[in-house]
Amino acid sequence: MYQTVLDAEAGGGSAALRDLHLSAYRFMLQARLLDEKLASLYRAGKIHGGVFLSRGQEALSVSIGVSLRKTDVFSPLIRDSAGRLAFGESILDALQTCLGSALGPMRGRDGNVHRGRPRDGYLAMISHLGAMISVVNGTLFARRFKGITDAVGATCIGDGGTATGAFHEALNQAAVEKLPLVLVVANNQYAYSTPNDREFACADLADRAVGYGVTPHSVDGTDLSACLEVMGRAVAQARAGGGPQLVVASLLRLCGHGEHDDAGYIDPRIKNSPLGRDCLKVAEDILLSRHWADASELASWRNEAVRAIETTVARVQREPAPDPFAEQWTAVAGTDLRETHEELGV
């Protein structure tokens, strides 16, 4: 079950497939290295608030990013560093947000994983789980309303988030409207610290798709090749008018919920099972065994990514922090609709 689906092709594969793997791997690597940098900045006290890493979920996430077009919609969740980069987010946007630069897309108003550029189809998540799914539905509904029929929208959630009412309402809504939604569930076995058996009672989360009239897909989330194949198929089916697709991936989060969490609750038996494989290592093995890359190329890509991250960190650390005296303290867009009353400043 955990063999890559491509092994069956016995060393073959087209150049396009190789290039897809190489591109995906390099985004995974960038994401992992970016995560490691964020963790060290956090430990050094350079980051305000939380840091949430994607370790162990890069293969699944990147497969979404590389399967989408830049004109599609992507609403990532907490562990989608790789998918974000693959969809087109710059390392600069990521670091400006995490380090609270006034020049970043969130201008210090929100941080860490709460970043995006909605005008570019790249939505900025709120913390309430399941809430982004219907928003993606809305973008797809709007595009169809405007006569754009070839767009796909993808969004992610964890096993824990599938228990929310918002998840149910939105998936049902997508099915009723036959929207080209790809909803990706990363079943990383724990909702924060709560194991699957305290979250849901069905045998497999993918079974839920049938109840909604949605197409199910299951995939080994530690296997890049499997993720690329399944996600590519789900996105293609959605784009071809097949309606919403529910992709459920099995994997394990190889870190705490955030960097404040030592993840001591994770059962060692799961860690030592195939679910506990490091998807980045699995991806490297695929590239090496298929002779799509050699060790020196892997090393040079790593050095290149580290340089890009270090250069960007140095740049962002020189950028100004938001200035409370220059801040526009209003949440409404209409300048004539702002409250004129002000409480006494202190």
Binding site: P118, I133, G138
Partner: peptide
């Protein structure tokens, strides 16, 4: 919940 969420997505799209 999904009604308002859809409206937000549509508003993002203009």
């Amino acid at each position: 919940d999904a009604m308002v969420g859809l409206a937000v997505g549509a508003a993002i799209e203009g």
